[in-house]
Design a binder for these strands. Structure first.
Length: 334
RNA sequence: GCUGAGGUGGCGGAGCGGUCAAACGCACGAGACUGUAAAUCUCGCGUCCGAAAGGGCUACUCAGGUUCGAAUCCUGACCUCAGCA
């Protein structure tokens, strides 16, 4: 087992859905004495297992160390953190995720293991790797409520008054995105009221050495995988999982239920669509999601991409990772 | 066979004489992204020239006609659907 020389190393496995990130990560964890942290905005919800693709062995149970509130599962003897962090009736956000991830990474290191961040939610990964300075600024429900019905123009005007710098930085798309505008106003307002804290925030800097591995495959290949995977989830009882959630008072409007493979069932339970139709729409959404994920990840030039259909695929990744762990420097860009 | 309704872009569906390359939605494509991110938002989407502004060409089943002007009105053909025989 290669020795891990530096303690601030973080291995990252990213890429679109259905490329086998978890499988690879588990193998790497075994080889390099690691533990996984899932970076997935949907797998954080309890009771949403089939649809979010928590690749858990049958009957797996979460284990909670006595000293902390977050638990882990085991896949093939490898610990995976980041599942079941939240109740699906509650909201969850990047801020919470970052806090959790930082704590767990520290903990993993303390135990002499290597943390491996694996997932497909770009923003969450970015939050852990690069940090999001404003992420800890709390939301302001009252403000959100009052701003709810404003038009993007009105919101932008308001933002410009409070923080002209930020307003100037917003691009054409965000200027018309009410959700982003409201958050920007929220942040601006908080800054006005918390000048001291703001400076503390800026002082914090990330000191991580990161190796980012990206998994891809030809579009057709992924499409086929998506179809198979959706079929598998239907068979595994996604419909029942949704019913159980509904019984537990999880409603269609909650953020957790905006997840693919969940929200599509609304039309089924309302008798508007057949199961076959639901499945078809779901498949389509998954494929679109793959594209959106790629748009995000493509931008990050630090990622070393590997085509999972290429010959020698897992071995090549292993080699890169091994080299990176042992030399203490980043791998050459390919 | 008769009667009624209708044939518009990849699809659904507006328009019902001029401001129509055609609302809106879907699909598709390209993007954005600093507390909802599997979310949210932007742009493009007949074709040709152009970086853009803009301009050219061809389009609303087909063929004729009326009109300064037609997807829109008239005639005929073909097709579809519904009702009656």
């Amino acid at each position: 087992m290669p020795a891990v020389k530096k303690m601030n190393k973080l291995l990252v496995i990213c890429g679109p859905t259905s490329t086998g990130k978890t499988t690879l990560a588990v193998a790497l964890a075994k080889k390099f004495n690691g533990e996984l942290i899932s970076a997935d905005s949907r797998q954080v919800y309890k009771g949403m297992d089939i649809g979010t693709g928590k690749d858990l062995p049958k009957g797996a149970k979460i284990k909670l160390p006595w000293f902390q509130k977050y638990g882990y599962y085991e896949i093939n003897g490898v610990k995976i953190w980041g599942y079941d962090l939240a109740d699906p009736r509650h909201e969850f956000n990047v801020g919470q995720y970052i806090k959790f991830a930082e704590r767990i990474i520290t903990d993993i290191r303390k135990r002499g293991k290597s943390p491996i961040l694996v997932g497909g939610t770009g923003l969450y990964m970015k939050g852990v790797i690069d940090g999001i300075p404003t992420a800890s600024i709390p939301k302001n429900n009252l403000l959100r409520k009052t701003l709810e019905r404003s038009t993007p123009e009105e919101l932008f005007e308001k933002l410009a008054q409070m923080d002209s710098l930020k307003a100037g930085q917003m691009n054409a798309s965000d200027k018309r995105n009410p959700r982003r505008l409201i958050r920007a106003i929220e942040v601006a307002m908080w800054k006005i009221n918390n000048i001291k804290k703001e400076k503390e925030m800026e002082a914090k800097k990330k000191d991580l050495e990161v190796l980012m591995i990206g998994l891809t495959a030809p579009e057709k290949f992924i499409s086929r995988r998506v179809e198979k995977r959706v079929a598998r989830r239907v068979k595994a009882g996604i419909k029942k999982e949704v019913q159980i959630l509904l019984k537990k008072h999880v409603t269609w409007k909650m953020p957790s239920m905006s997840s693919m493979g969940y929200r599509q069932w609304k039309d089924y339970f309302d008798n508007k669509k057949t199961e076959a139709e639901v499945v078809k729409v779901w498949e389509g959404e998954e494929k679109k999601y793959v594209r959106r994920q790629m748009v995000w990840f493509k931008k990050d030039k630090r990622i070393h991409w590997f085509d999972i259909t290429a010959p020698g695929y897992p071995e090549n990744v292993e080699k890169s990772v091994e080299k990176w762990y042992s030399t203490g420097s980043n791998v050459e860009k390919s």
